[in-house]
């Protein structure tokens, strides 16, 4: 028996929005530790890794580890039927072929449930090595989304350069060039508005705009985003999910030809 209840059901809706454009289908792995998902986009350029710890759920029961393969377009349809203020409960049997979603309104006067057929996915799991990154930048997530959107107008890829002074996003295209520099903030009233840079050595890497823009669909999850960069390894873009989880996107760099 698997049962997970999240009072703040809007978190699950936001998680769905954060992955549905990138992935067509994905396996949700459930264990006593919580819910995890790892999947590559269709072109195998990026990888999504989602972790929601059991401690973040109001109720969490998972008697046996199980994997639930879901079509994300179908899941999206179901989660769109939940209001932002609804509590969401997921339920499945031990060897399930369906999963049930129950949405309860705040006053409990409206209860709806939907069941969805699961699919068998033969997804390969990738081992993500522990990496000490040369630069780790934390910045407001809305700012990152705006920069990616603004610069995408000018070219297909963005170069991210990081020094101890700050981070620079650059684009070059047919009509010209664009640069956005963010300095490390000295002191800000709100932690959510800070830009911080932890740098071992400077880095400059180039990434496809298209994927960066997909990742920014996670912006509603968290006010801050963390970018981890090292030469010649994938970029990690991380958004926290409340206090109990995260969504990490790994993006392979573009290489010089």
């Amino acid at each position: 028996m698997f049962e997970a209840r999240l009072t703040q059901g809007s978190l699950l809706k936001k998680v769905m929005e954060a992955i549905r454009e990138l992935l067509n289908e994905a396996s949700f792995d459930c264990s006593e530790n919580g819910i995890q998902l790892q999947a590559m986009d269709n072109s195998h350029v990026s990888l999504v890794s989602l972790n929601m710890g059991s401690e973040g759920f109001d109720k969490f029961r998972c008697d046996r580890n199980l994997t639930m393969g879901m079509n994300l377009a179908s899941l999206s349809k179901i989660l769109k039927c939940a209001s932002n203020s609804d509590a969401i409960t997921l339920k499945a049997q031990d060897d399930p072929d369906t999963v049930t979603f129950t949405f309860e309104s705040e006053n409990n006067e409206r209860v709806s449930d939907y069941s969805m057929k699961l699919i068998n996915l033969d997804q390969e799991h990738l081992g993500i090595p522990d990496t000490e990154y040369s630069c780790v930048v934390k910045m407001p997530s809305a700012d990152f989304a705006r920069i990616c959107k603004d610069l995408s107008q000018f070219g297909d890829c963005i170069t991210i350069s990081c020094t101890k002074e700050g981070i620079k996003f650059s684009v070059a295209g047919d009509i010209g060039t664009g640069n956005v520099k963010l300095a490390q903030t000295a002191n800000v009233d709100k932690e959510s508005e800070a830009v911080t840079v932890e740098m071992q050595e400077p880095v400059s890497l180039t990434f496809a705009c298209r994927y960066l823009n997909h990742f920014t669909k996670a912006t509603p999850l968290s006010e801050q985003v963390q970018l981890s960069l090292s030469a010649d390894v994938p970029l990690v873009v991380e958004y926290k999910i409340g206090e109990f989880g995260h969504i990490r996107y790994y993006l392979a760099p573009k290489i010089d030809e």
Binding site: M40, H44, S46, E124, L126, G127
Partner: peptide, 14 residues
């Protein structure tokens, strides 16, 4: 996409 590397180049199958 021109010059785009695959994520599989960096992460091995577990």
């Amino acid at each position: 996409i021109k010059g785009q590397s695959s994520i599989l180049k960096f992460f091995a199958t577990a």
